[in-house]
């Protein structure tokens, strides 16, 4: 049985696509057949973050409309044999996705892959609702910041009411919190919400804490998912999150504040 996982957040810019690329690549690295699906019709970016933007021929909407076969639209990752990408359409609008079409295509993918990761668009419109519709599990990507936490709470409500599992009265979508852009130094100063604060408010299990890291921009610049940057704190955090997704019990790492020496702490200006 494939695990269908939606990567969602409500708010934009919190790291859904970065996290989809990282977790998808991580799962493939561990030997699981994985597909990452871009639901952001009209604003596709997963192809860019995965570094396969020049190989897109057909897309998700073409498959739904019957204009292309699923295997024609799927792009095989160059680095990992187990990994495929289903890009979103760049030219159509979000209404091009239909519930029946999405169910059919995700169903087909679930036959072929072990993991289907659905990268949701921001917002709570059709695209976001369709991205979560078939999901068995949800990774709620959240920044330690008020608007992101509020939007995540809203998304949790939708996961409990607007998914196929909810409609059918099945077991609820399993929820995971992925806290991204975490900055321990700012937390220590009392200027950023702590992990514990966010957990207390959202009350769902923690999948991982990804620290704010320069490696993320470097990764997207070069189209190589950040999990492959094994030296970076963000890359290691995503690798840990993959392990937890696979059922390993791993302690959460709290990366120490970066880049400030004792000298800087004594005499440097506080930012």
């Amino acid at each position: 049985m494939a695990r269908i996982i939606v990567m969602t957040s409500g708010k934009g810019g919190v790291g859904k696509t970065t996290s989809t690329a990282a977790l998808g690549t991580g799962l493939a690295l561990r030997g699981h057949k994985t597909v990452v699906v871009d639901f952001d019709v009209g604003l596709r970016n997963l192809d860019l973050i995965m570094g396969c933007e020049r190989r897109v021929v057909f897309d998700f909407v073409n498959v739904i409309a019957g204009e292309a076969k699923l295997h024609q639209a799927l792009i095989k990752d160059k680095r990992h044999e187990n990994l495929s990408i289903l890009p979103a359409s760049q030219t159509r609008d979000k209404e091009a996705l239909t519930k029946e079409g999405v169910e059919r295509v995700i169903g087909q993918l679930a036959q072929e892959f072990d993991y289907v990761l659905c990268d949701s668009p921001a917002g709570i419109e059709t695209g976001a609702l369709l991205a979560m519709y078939c999901a068995d599990e949800a990774v709620v990507v959240t920044n330690p910041e008020v608007s992101s936490v509020r939007d995540s709470d809203r998304i949790l409500g939708l996961l409990a009411s607007r998914t196929r599992r909810a409609e059918r009265g099945e077991a609820p979508v399993k929820q995971h919190l992925l806290l991204t852009r975490y900055d321990q130094a700012r937390v220590d100063r009392g200027d950023m919400l702590k992990v514990e604060d966010v957990l207390e408010i959202l009350a769902i299990p923690l999948l991982g804490i990804v620290p704010e890291s320069e490696a993320v921009l470097r990764a997207s610049n070069s189209g190589v998912p950040v999990i492959l940057d094994e030296k970076s704190a963000a890359g290691r955090a995503y690798a840990d999150a993959v392990s937890r997704l696979l059922g390993d019990q791993i302690e959460h790492r709290f990366p120490a504040a970066q880049g400030k020496s004792l000298f800087q702490r004594l005499f440097g200006r506080t930012a």
Partner: peptide, 26 residues
């Protein structure tokens, strides 16, 4: 930073304010 050690810490820090506002709102 050296002089920060002698300063009375400002209260409350913005993170606790954020938490309180979120709890009420949600």
């Amino acid at each position: 930073a050296l002089f920060d050690w002698f300063r009375v810490p400002r209260q409350p820090r913005s993170a606790s304010l954020a938490k309180e506002r979120l709890q009420i709102l949600l």
